[in-house]
Write a protein that binds this DNA or RNA. Sequence first.
DNA 1: CAGCTAAGTTAGTAGGTAGTAACTAGAAAC
DNA 2: GTTTCTAGTTACTACCTACTAACTTAGCTG
Lengths: 187, 187
Amino acid sequence: MTGQERRAQVLAVAEQEFAVAGLHGVSTETIAHRAGITQAYVFRLFGTKKQLFLACVDAAFERMTLAMLGAGGASGLEALTAMGREYDAMLADRTTLLLQLQGTTAAAAGDPEVRDAVRASFGRLWQAVADTAGLDPVAIKAFLAFGMLLNTGAALELAEVDEGWARQARTRIQPGLFNHITTETNQ
Amino acid sequence: MTGQERRAQVLAVAEQEFAVAGLHGVSTETIAHRAGITQAYVFRLFGTKKQLFLACVDAAFERMTLAMLGAGGASGLEALTAMGREYDAMLADRTTLLLQLQGTTAAAAGDPEVRDAVRASFGRLWQAVADTAGLDPVAIKAFLAFGMLLNTGAALELAEVDEGWARQARTRIQPGLFNHITTETNQ
DNA sequence: CAGCTAAGTTAGTAGGTAGTAACTAGAAAC
DNA sequence: GTTTCTAGTTACTACCTACTAACTTAGCTG
């Protein structure tokens, strides 16, 4: 296997592990074993555990950002509707959603390297949504806020909770909502 | 110092540590040392590290829930406005916000004990907001979604970021927004 | 003062942790 | 046909980890 192929494979394994367990919740040994290599080689490929973690988080935000940019073409509300569909499709990809969450919480630890990297990723995502939709800042903010709630839902596995509040957390929001937000906040 | 006093003190220290570093990001030794006792005594007081962590997360959600319930009295939109003020005041209490985030991400690991506890806490918070405001489910959902975004902002320390998107993430949302949401989703 | 209880410590176990240095097998290059 | 590069391993260090059992000290009570 070439270096690039191996790197991609290790990254894929690491993403799954970090997504559920977080930076300190899984060992490099576990990741290496699942990838079928020795732990020492993981360090050869990625330098430090933190760098591997950040590569995973970055990839997750990048996937989400590209999905949002890919929903462009149409403008304004239509673009937001398309992005909503994209975000909804992302619900199936639990790893991506959880990595955003894990990156965000890891950023709270105060390590500037982690914090700055996650900030930058989040900023790019925000900017992508804002540029693609071109709507009122409040509508963009609302859109991303619902995104954060979906991430929470993924972590708590609300899909399998049969209670009133959990069902309400699951209901798809109507795209028209953001149109009303835009209209009302600009009146 | 009595057992109860010591318990409360250890809990306070543990909350601060877990809030920034998460369940696996801080050792019981560190917490014990900061509380001025031996590590062994922490286990005598709380049984396991996980139980101590869950006690911290529980306390954070409980504080938030009580703050929301305390904003009641008025009904409907006025209650939501008051709750918004409460949530905004909570921004000063970074520990509480981050513990919600840490609890949520820890729940992703698949441990049923953690997941069920955090689910229950989150459900109680949701129910408290819903009962106090008594508004449309979509408005409640939007309110809590913005809450999740504030938690994210706390983790990334967006308050000190001087970029367009970060400034938009900081802007207070107008309470009237939720009224429009209620009106529009019920039309 | 004897006995009990509550608060707390000492000293350990058993295993995991990130990270490093030195080595090796095979293929490609000149 | 030797050299050089690439993918990968072995073997290790130094230390941290949650958790336990047995002991101690001080105050309260009969």
